[in-house]
Design a protein around this nucleic acid. Structure first.
Lengths: 220, 220
DNA sequence: CTATTTGAACTGACTGGTCAGTTTAGTTAG
DNA sequence: CTAACTAAACTGACCAGTCAGTTCAAATAG
């Protein structure tokens, strides 16, 4: 409220211009994102102090409050940051429409890669996603919607090219696949590091193969 | 550590006798489990105070430390308590061996019922399960193993009765199904209350139908 | 080309408050 | 009679957020 830095604080949550911001700030924010993701993924949002985050980022506590208005804001923007990265990867899958099932498989592979590269983000997501009420409820709802839309359209692609089981609702399937990506990715990193990327993808893809109602272009 | 209540504290984490304990204590512990599950599911283990738990359970703070040695102990035993309930439900599914797929489906249904009845436990589980390092790491590893064993044997039943896709490893499939149960259950409660139990079960069962390698009992 | 100014970015000590866990003396119920 | 529980005060650590002050690069002035 009574924030009064010497200059105008850029902490604005509704940040309009990302690129226009001086280089130093962007670097600082990036460092803060990385440190936060790591620490919060390990010990949970409530279990990490702002001091720790600042120290890990090689920055003073005040800088955190200069760049973000509050711990809560930092986390909200961290969530957006991570989802931006994941979305970019999912959308990088060319929608060949040659084979929607193959596109789906590649997408799941991209998701697995993301989980392997940012396991802390995945932990943060599953830790806070279903809390209710939570400070980030709206943020989660929005981001979840965006991600599910991408998966949903991939499922639609499959449903358009193959006969599918009408007893399986698209929404539930979206959720099951989306959730399985997080959980399988996290389990691999935590309990089964020997599991390969391909095994994990295959296990998740099983639901897609069970969704299409077997027959023509299955193999060969 | 330096715990020393007036009487001999029964807080022992390696509690041998549950039933031998006087009725009052069991009732108190039950109330504390319920209150903890609710609060911790909502705000996370670190976000809830012992005072709050005690108040919600209608009990004094000292009682918490009398029955459990610490907040950490309370949570560890809470995890065991919840898993006991879930295990009992999963094992209640009669292994007809008439149709292993049907048994699997009923098991997933039981899991969905559990998630609907104890959503807070599910939240607690996914919130803390993949943290590393964590005070409950060993507890989680053990409980996870127990649950996966049950699911695994159900999968084995299917694999024994149907031709299955060898490219899908049993372990990854276990994980995917186990995780999907939690995630689909939580998503239903948080974001899609209109989703039916059957839709959710069908979505998760899709992976089992994709696991068996086409043919006889697909469709008329 | 040097001196001065400006203000965004950053610092870190400090404050007010919270919390886990302890202790004690007394009360209740089986 | 004794295990279980209460109530309330206390400790020591910790933490989110604040704010007065510092740094420095770039703009402006001489």
């Amino acid at each position: 409220m009574t924030t009064s830095q010497s200059g105008d604080s850029p902490a604005g949550s509704g940040d309009a211009q990302k690129k226009l911001r001086p280089a130093r700030t962007n670097a600082t924010r990036q460092k803060l994102f990385e440190a936060s993701m790591e620490l919060i993924g390990e010990r949970g949002a409530a279990g990490v102090t702002v001091d720790e985050i600042a120290t890990a980022a090689g920055v003073s506590k005040g800088t955190v409050y200069y760049n973000f208005g509050s711990k809560s804001d930092l986390i909200a923007q961290l969530l957006r940051h991570g989802v931006d990265i994941l979305m970019a990867r999912l959308l990088s899958v060319r929608d060949d429409s040659a084979d929607p099932l193959a596109a789906m498989e590649e997408m799941i592979g991209q998701a697995m890669d993301f989980m392997a590269e940012y396991p802390s983000f995945a932990r943060l997501w599953v830790s806070e996603n279903w809390r209710t009420p939570s400070e980030w409820q709206d943020t989660f709802a929005e981001l979840r919607g965006r991600l599910l839309a991408v998966i949903g359209s991939a499922i639609d692609g499959v449903a358009a090219a193959y006969p599918v089981d009408p007893a399986v609702s698209r929404g539930s399937l979206e959720t099951a696949i989306f959730g399985a990506c997080f959980v399988v990715g996290l389990d691999r990193q935590t309990y089964n590091p020997e599991r390969t990327r391909e095994q994990s993808v295959a296990a998740i893809m099983a639901s897609m193969r069970g969704y299409v109602v077997k027959q023509p272009p299955a193999r060969a």
